[in-house]
Write a protein that binds this DNA or RNA. Structure first.
Lengths: 202, 202
DNA sequence: TTGACAATGTATCGAACGTTCGATACAACC
DNA sequence: GGTTGTATCGAACGTTCGATACATTGTCAA
């Protein structure tokens, strides 16, 4: 009936949804096994224990979300456009995968030492992408703050909070809302002299 | 040994710390009772059940944090300064009471219908404070976005995320860091023509 | 002094938790 | 055709959970 490795992926997907909706402690492995019509012990066969399941989830997220952001960050265009593009992509991709995003920031305190490290590593990867994109803008003297890291934190704040307040059935479309976020991020982070052109001199 | 009503307050304070550190599901009422050297049943005597304890905590937070913000928002100064002041106060007071802040945003999914409503009400109160402070700036045509609400969300994003990344033992002081947040918030939210003066015409 | 009532403690409950176990079914390999 | 490895199962383990029942103490008005 089922191909090889299918159940494992199915379990991960179900666990992502349940963890995102009810949290780590709020979701029992029985809930997850029931959602996949399989047995408790099958989860232990695949992941060792409950935290092993979380680690597998984090791996999945790391591969998908971070890859999308890296792609956006490596586009070959002007630094400002690249920054704009990164924030916009992050809003859109992150909203599509908002369940995964919730897991990243919701559950750190319930994890063991190893789980915490993996979690931090992923968050650090994302932060680094932003720093990298912001760096040429800083070198061009466009950054408002002194610290690349603080600026990156602030931009990430906007994006991650966006996933909390935005509702698809609200008055704004995803496109409108994420453009608002981009605008806020650009103007909060950068000093823009109304002349956006003539920028790529360096 | 203990005065009347002391135990109740002691239980609330201990519960705030434990919930903030380990989450709602991660903290048992036994943990809380042990932290106060009292018995399980005392908690049920005072709060009815575990969620009643959370509701009592939310009441406490609502009284303290919201009151501080209201105070900052009602200062009699120029609208821009009032906005600046509100964000700054929020950063500082919120950091001092960061445990309470975590509870506000961490646990919604574990609460019952009533708990959710109380939680939303408090978040709505805070959002309204920001909207109120932003309104005169919008009427003066200084707001970048069309929506007061979205702008308020974005500012709240910066403040609430600040509580996540800021560390007292880091390279920046609380004052430096919160000023960075204020700067980002002001420039992200508002169109400022470098001439800040001559503003209070209305 | 006593009686009501709030405050606190002890003992216990059923349910749910994460985890482990021994046993299959089945495919692949030797 | 025996051996091995993987996927899956149901049952049970010990622990902890939120909650309750009931007894005891403390306090203060009648």
């Amino acid at each position: 009936m089922s191909e090889r490795g299918n159940k494992r992926e199915e379990l991960i997907q179900a666990a992502i949804s349940l963890f995102a909706a009810r949290g780590f402690r709020g979701t029992s492995i029985r809930d997850i096994s029931k959602a996949c019509n399989t047995s408790l012990s099958n989860i232990y066969h695949y992941f060792g224990d409950k935290e092993g399941l979380v680690l597998a989830i984090l791996e999945t997220i790391s591969e998908k979300l971070v890859a999308s952001l890296r792609e956006a960050a490596q586009e070959d265009s002007e630094p400002l456009d690249r920054f704009r593009c990164l924030v916009l992509i992050h809003c859109n991709v992150g909203w599509e995968r908002s369940e995964e995003g919730k897991i990243l920031f919701l559950e750190e305190e319930h994890l063991s030492q190893e789980g915490r490290q993996v979690n931090r590593r992923i968050q650090h990867e994302i932060l680094d992408i932003y720093r990298e994109v912001l760096r040429p803008l800083k070198e061009a003297g466009l950054l408002r703050g002194d610290s690349l890291t603080v600026t990156a934190f602030n931009v990430l704040a906007l994006v991650n909070w966006f996933f909390r307040w935005f509702r698809n059935d609200g008055p704004m479309s995803l496109q409108e809302a994420s453009e608002q976020v981009v605008s806020f991020a650009v103007n909060g982070a950068l000093r823009i002299d109304s002349s956006v052109a003539g920028f790529s001199q360096r």
